[in-house]
Amino acid sequence: MRGDASVNEQMPWSLPVNIDRPMKPLCEEGVERIHAAATVILKDFAPPDIDGAIREKLADFVARRTIEGSPPTGV
């Protein structure tokens, strides 16, 4: 035994407690409102401007990874 045995003592373990309350399923109106808000966000989305050299390097990387067996992307 090395040194003081109390060094190896651990705090008692207990199950974690989930403090988040379960959510009730949304009504149809709630789902429609969320869908409408998401549609507006997606409609207004514009990808950021990327320098041409960086875009080319990214396209080369995606092509290389696709050849290596990665799933295709939308790039």
Results as ranks from 00 to 15, higher is better:
Val75Thr: 10
Asp4Leu: 08
Thr39Lys: 14
Pro25Leu: 03
Ile50Cys: 03
His35Ala: 15
Glu32Gln: 14
Arg64Gly: 03
Gln10Cys: 13
Pro12Asp: 05
Met11Ser: 14
Lys24Tyr: 06
Lys57Arg: 11
Leu26Val: 03
Val31Lys: 00
Ile54Asn: 05
Phe45Ser: 09
Asp44Trp: 07
Leu58Ser: 04
Pro71Leu: 13
Val62Leu: 01
Asp4Ala: 10
Val75Asn: 02
Asn8Ile: 05
Ala53Met: 02
Ile19Val: 13
Asn18Arg: 04
Ile34Met: 09
Glu9Phe: 15
Pro16Leu: 10
Glu28Asp: 11
Pro48Ala: 10
Leu58Asp: 04
Asp49Trp: 12
Pro25Asn: 07
Leu42Trp: 14
Arg65Trp: 06
Asp49Tyr: 14
Met1Ala: 14
Ser6Trp: 01
Phe45Glu: 00
Pro72Gln: 01
Leu26Glu: 12
Lys24Phe: 05
Leu26His: 07
Lys24Met: 09
Asn8Val: 10
Gly30Trp: 00
Glu56His: 09
Ile34Tyr: 04
Val31Gly: 08
Ala38Phe: 08
Gly30Tyr: 03
Ile50Pro: 07
Asp60Lys: 03
Pro22Arg: 02
Asp51Thr: 01
Ile41Tyr: 10
Ile34His: 07
Glu68Pro: 05
Val40Trp: 06
Cys27Ile: 07
Pro48Phe: 04
Arg33Met: 00
Leu26Trp: 11
Asp4Cys: 04
Gly30Ala: 00
Phe61Met: 02
Ala5Trp: 07
Asp49Thr: 13
Met1Thr: 14
Lys24Ile: 02
Lys43Ala: 01
Arg64Glu: 06
Val62Cys: 00
Pro22Tyr: 03
Asp51His: 05
Gly30Asp: 02
Phe61Gln: 02
Pro48Asn: 06
Pro71Arg: 13
Arg65Phe: 04
Val40Tyr: 10
Arg33Leu: 07
Arg65Leu: 06
His35Asp: 15
His35Trp: 10
Glu28Ile: 08
Phe45His: 13
Ala59Glu: 15
Lys43Val: 01
Lys24Trp: 01
Ile19His: 12
Lys57Phe: 00
Lys43Phe: 01
Ala63Asn: 05
Arg55Ala: 13
Arg2Asp: 15
Phe45Pro: 08
Thr73Pro: 02
Met1Ile: 15
Asn8Glu: 13
Gly74Tyr: 06
Arg55Ser: 13
Ile54Phe: 03
Met11Pro: 09
Val31Arg: 11
Gly3Gln: 07
Gly69Arg: 05
Pro12Trp: 02
Ser14Cys: 11
Pro48Met: 00
Leu58Gly: 11
Pro16Asp: 03
Glu28Phe: 03
Phe61Trp: 09
Ile41Asp: 07
Leu42Lys: 13
Arg21Met: 06
Ala38Pro: 01
Ile19Thr: 12
Met1Lys: 09
Ile41Gln: 09
Thr73Trp: 01
Ala63His: 03
Val75His: 06
Ala53Gln: 04
Arg64Gln: 09
Ala36His: 08
Asp60Trp: 06
Met23Pro: 03
Ile54Pro: 08
Thr73Leu: 03
Arg2Trp: 12
Ala5Asn: 07
Glu29Cys: 03
